[in-house]
């Protein structure tokens, strides 16, 4: 080959940047989209259980959350962050945490609180101390306690999917005082044919999505295992001590928002501890608070509160669980403010 035929690089077009020059291709958008995909079985179960209005509620929440984020970034003079998918995920989680009868305007109020106050006011994704979807849900629960705790019965299996929800209100397993007898069969509890928020009732769908996220290493298994395990242990002991007043642990772990909370809300990256030890502490903490609220609190359900309270402890947990770097003998971790 003669020198004249050799094509040489054009140095004027070279990119110069800091190492490393390889990247594994992960992105925030991919993570958020995968979480949304993992939620799909539970969404589908919600629609099948509570009828097409479940789809409407989720859609309103998603669209409202994205709109609020778009407006906030506009007002803040920042580039639009809708592309990262986090607003859509927050909207979907908010919708799944609401009763199927929630009016659209209430969904919008929830979205404004979730995204506006729960997230954008702190500076957007990455800076919010509390899980935005739960901030929205809990605000609605406080503001509209009746609407937020009116549960309708699941569709009867024989009626067509497009039929509206019948207006019969139905008690939830946790909302009804335990009398020693199960209101729902264990099978009904398992597949989610009970009263409840539209996305929280179907245990197998939620577990399937959660296992997918664990397999993809998006969430740490320690959080759901410790969270659900702690609730089971505490309610189990209480049930053994007073079987007449406390429901059995199986009912506790399969009802309310525990599965949705443990797999999808207590594992939110931004608002939970970084490390494995921190994840264990966080999970156990959530479990204890949930069990305490359920057994002795004035609310029948405590998963949302438990996660929000533990969110507040996240910086502290991170600080006390920070490990020693490799080769470090004495470490200032405990005296340093992060």
């Amino acid at each position: 080959m003669t020198e004249t035929t050799v094509r040489l690089p054009d140095t004027s077009k070279l990119v110069v940047s800091s190492s490393p020059h390889f990247h594994d291709g992960s992105s925030v958008r991919k993570i958020m989209l995968l979480v949304i995909v993992a939620l799909m079985p539970a969404c589908l179960a919600g629609v099948l259980t509570f009828g097409p209005r479940a789809l409407w509620v989720m859609l309103v929440c998603v669209v409202a959350c994205m709109l609020v984020e778009a407006i906030c970034t506009k007002l803040q003079g920042r580039t639009c962050t809708l592309g990262d998918g986090s607003a859509a995920l927050t909207g979907l989680l908010l919708g799944m945490n609401l009763p199927v009868t929630t009016p659209a305007w209430m969904c919008v109020v929830g979205a404004i609180i979730a995204i506006g106050i729960g997230k954008m006011i702190y500076g957007g994704l990455g800076y919010n101390p509390f899980n935005p979807a739960l901030v929205g849900r809990v605000a609605l629960l406080m503001a509209f306690p009746t609407a937020m705790t009116t549960w309708v019965a699941p569709r009867s299996a024989s009626s067509p999917l497009w039929a509206g929800v019948d207006s019969v209100t139905r008690a939830t397993p946790l909302g009804t005082p335990w009398t020693g007898e199960q209101l729902f069969s264990t099978w009904e509890l398992f597949i989610g044919r009970t009263g409840g928020s539209l996305g929280e009732t179907c245990v197998p769908a939620l577990v399937l999505g959660g296992l997918l996220l664990i397999a993809l290493k998006i969430i740490r298994w320690q959080v759901p295992v410790c969270f659900i395990g702690t609730v089971a242990v505490i309610t189990g002991i209480a049930h053994l001590a007073a079987p007449e007043q406390v429901a059995p642990p199986l009912l506790h772990i399969m009802s309310g928002g525990l599965m949705l909370g443990a797999f999808f809300m207590a594992t939110d990256m931004v608002t939970t501890p970084l490390g494995r030890t921190g994840a264990v502490i966080f999970g156990v903490g959530c479990g204890v608070i949930t069990a305490v609220i359920r057994l002795w609190g004035s609310y029948p359900e405590g998963v949302s509160f438990a996660i929000l309270i533990m969110n507040a402890f996240t910086p502290l947990i991170d600080r006390y669980t920070a490990g020693k770097p490799f080769g470090v003998i004495s470490h200032p971790g405990r005296e340093v403010k992060l």
Partner: peptide, 29 residues
């Protein structure tokens, strides 16, 4: 060195001294 390797068939967008994880991107040959 690049001439010895036969030159290029497509235009490179980055040239690195060293490996891809710790090497330095250069702007001159």
């Amino acid at each position: 060195a690049i001439k010895l390797a036969g030159g290029v068939k497509t235009d490179p967008v980055k040239i690195i001294s060293g490996g891809p994880m710790m090497g330095m991107a250069v702007y001159s040959l």
